[in-house]
Design a protein around this nucleic acid. Structure first.
Lengths: 244, 244
DNA sequence: GGAGCCCTTTGATCCACGTCAATACGATTT
DNA sequence: AAATCGTATTGACGTGGATCAAAGGGCTCC
């Protein structure tokens, strides 16, 4: 048995090539050799405790981050104190793209639970994506996906009623948990009613009441942050049947 | 005088290197040699008449578009007919970034007036931006700017009142007209009250009433689509003084 | 240059969601 | 196991913006 370069357990756990999130993340579509190049680029890993900031609005932009474990929210805060949650991010998703345009971050990224991210120095990412076409393209897709997602949120905020917003939110969470190999119908929300409300443009009381109504109608079973979806088609019907 | 390749007036008018929008557009930050390379990439130009689509949701994605003259709106339409305007675009701004992620466009782009765009075939843009670092970076900035802009709209839709939304909208338009060398205080809106309302998450009646209120308060002079801003600090104050 | 139609304005009324308030639950700490 | 504090639920009431309706104004297209 050859053992020229002893590989420690930590190093193995660390590499994109060994990461079970690679199909959801930056390495998607790269061949093994290319993934190894990406491995070298992902300099370090950072652990962020629940409620702590990964970055703040105004921080200099140096890297983007791929979520390896845990979850985050991003928000924007106005001078007068009002804040708007602009997204919830799960494993394999990328954080920090907002910082590219202005050389500094334009929102806050806060861990919803103890989490870990891969630090991807942006200058080096641009460098490598000039050499690796598939990486370049995947990165562009990730940015574009963020734009499309934002359009969906604008649709939701601009023209949906409270029930529709919450139904859309639950179906979106379900779909993303599914993509990560978890149950489509049963999951644990990491964010508070207030944070959900901010994201959906509703007050926390409205979120709570709407959850209760869904429960009364047999669509979901809600127990605090634990959600069981009982009637997916019913939720989808709320989205489509606009009775106005 | 050599004249191997006769250059017609049209071709000259056509080039990025001669375009007075280059400081706002993709060529920003490139040196003259690099801009010439970009010139070769911008294959053709397309004229779009008022109310016509530049592309539709579902169209295959092949190119992005830089607006050379005129203006556009983008919108998303749900099955039940509801639609949401996701943005208004002016000269020098780029359209079509939504299409990268799914290989097809995910919204509609419609000309608000007779307009003209530069067609930038996306495969060739990726190719050239692998060679030209400054182009790559400028393209990334443009995508990132779109994400930041979307966050601003989410803030607006999620946590602002009607007056604040319209004030933010007017200040944003003013700032963009200014960047294009037009008056900061007097301009012509190309979109209807209904389109403004859709963008701001309000009904057209509310937009109209809010314009009237602004007029009563001496903040603006409104005459149909012609807007004169009389009190910019007053408008800014509406944005910051959240009396709730 | 006139007819028609879309766009805009304004008023009256309604209702979904916000606000205010009280209580209850659950996780964490001691 | 009790105390504490953030989080969630639920009720009563208020309101900003939606809806319904009607009339006037200004483009656009013949």
């Amino acid at each position: 048995m050859k053992s020229v370069v002893p590989i420690t357990a930590v190093e193995i756990k660390t590499a994109c090539s060994q990461c079970n999130l690679r199909e959801l993340c930056l390495p998607f579509g790269l061949d093994p050799g290319e993934i190894n190049q990406l491995d070298e680029l992902v300099g370090s890993r950072r652990k962020i405790k629940r409620q702590q900031h990964l970055y703040r609005s105004g921080d200099p932009f140096e890297a983007i981050y791929a979520i390896r474990a845990g979850s985050f929210k991003t928000d924007v805060i106005l001078e007068d104190g009002r804040d708007q949650v602009t997204g919830f991010q799960m494993t394999g998703e990328v954080l920090g793209l907002d910082g590219i345009s202005g050389e500094e971050h334009s929102c806050n990224a806060i861990a919803l639970e103890d989490s870990e991210v891969c630090v991807i120095p942006f200058v080096r990412l641009e460098e490598l994506s000039r050499q690796v076409e598939s990486l370049q393209h995947q990165f562009h897709k990730i940015m574009s996906r963020e734009i499309v997602r934002d359009h969906g949120v604008m649709m939701l905020l601009g023209s949906m009623r409270a029930e529709e917003r919450l139904a859309a939110f639950l179906l979106n969470m379900s779909q993303r948990f599914t993509a990560r190999g978890f149950s489509p119908s049963e999951f644990h929300l990491r964010m508070t009613r207030d944070e959900i409300g901010s994201y959906l443009g509703l007050k926390l009381e409205t979120v709570s009441r709407t959850f209760s109504r869904f429960q009364d109608e047999g669509l979901v079973a809600v127990q605090q942050k634990h959600i069981r979806i009982l009637n997916t088609p019913g939720l989808k019907r709320i989205l489509n049947h606009h009775t106005a």
